[in-house]
Computed example of a mutant assay.
Amino acid sequence: MSESGAYYTEERWNNWLDRLREEDVDPEDEDAARLFFNLMDDAAIAVAKVLTELEEGELDAEAAQSELERIREIVMTEVEFDDEEKLVFVDTIQTSLLSVFYAAEEYVAAGPAEEGTPEEYVEAAADAEAEEDVDAALMYCVQAGTLIIDGEEFDTRLAEEIEYGYVANFVDGLTSLQEALADPELVEEED
């Protein structure tokens, strides 16, 4: 059993933020996109490792829940940057990871959604966002996430059809989670 902090540390998150502070963030730039997805994937991988150890009996539900909450608290801490673009960058990553954290916590607490497919939940989330109900949109994405954790394949092509907004971000998080569950290898912090 891993000791607390073995999944994700404040230091690890801060290393990513320091790297972001040092780099120019141009949304059109491939390196910025890679940094964005590496930051998100790194946290999703930590979540996947907790879920894997729960599945393998290395963690009980209470310990898993505690680790997931700890990782969420590290990543969701308010970040200070002088650069507005970098603040938006981090805010978008945090928004994307909300669906990952809440799906994992919901899965540990209550298991997977009882019916539906990840795609149906994501479509319902997009409809909810169109009605300006972001909380409902997030909850639908959380349900999609519980199914992904349970092993259902999410068709990531659906992400391309979603208008940019909260649901698009939540789906980025779910895509990252699905990849992390398939291959929970840590993202290298250095190039």
Rank of each mutant, 00 (worst) to 15 (best):
E3M: 13
S4N: 06
Y7F: 12
Y8R: 03
T9E: 03
R12G: 02
W13D: 07
W13R: 14
N14H: 01
N14M: 10
D18W: 11
E28S: 11
D29T: 07
E30T: 15
E30N: 11
A32G: 09
A32L: 11
A33Q: 15
A33E: 12
A33C: 01
R34T: 15
F36A: 05
F36G: 03
F36I: 03
F37N: 07
F37D: 07
N38R: 13
D41V: 04
D42G: 10
A43C: 12
A44R: 05
A44G: 09
A46R: 02
A48G: 08
K49Y: 00
E53K: 11
E56R: 13
E56N: 10
E58P: 01
L59R: 02
L59M: 07
E62Q: 10
E73Q: 07
V75M: 08
E78I: 10
V79A: 13
D83E: 13
D83N: 15
D83K: 11
E84D: 08
E85L: 13
K86S: 04
V88M: 04
F89S: 06
V90Y: 04
V90C: 05
D91W: 07
I93V: 14
T95C: 05
S96N: 08
L98V: 00
L98S: 15
S99P: 02
F101Q: 04
Y102G: 00
E105H: 09
E106Y: 06
Y107T: 00
V108F: 05
A109W: 00
A110G: 11
A110V: 00
A113K: 05
G116T: 09
T117K: 09
V122Y: 01
A124G: 02
A125E: 01
A125H: 01
D127C: 04
E129W: 02
A130D: 07
A130H: 10
E131T: 10
V134I: 14
A136Q: 11
L138Y: 12
L138H: 08
L138D: 08
Y140K: 03
C141M: 03
C141S: 11
G145S: 07
T146Q: 04
T146L: 01
D150S: 13
G151R: 06
E152F: 12
E152S: 01
E153R: 08
E153Q: 08
D155Q: 04
E161K: 04
I162T: 09
I162P: 03
E163K: 00
E163I: 02
Y166P: 03
V167T: 10
G173Q: 03
S176E: 15
Q178R: 08
Q178F: 05
E179R: 12
A180Y: 01
L181G: 09
D183T: 10
D183I: 05
E185S: 07
L186H: 11
L186C: 02
E189N: 06
E190F: 11
D191W: 14
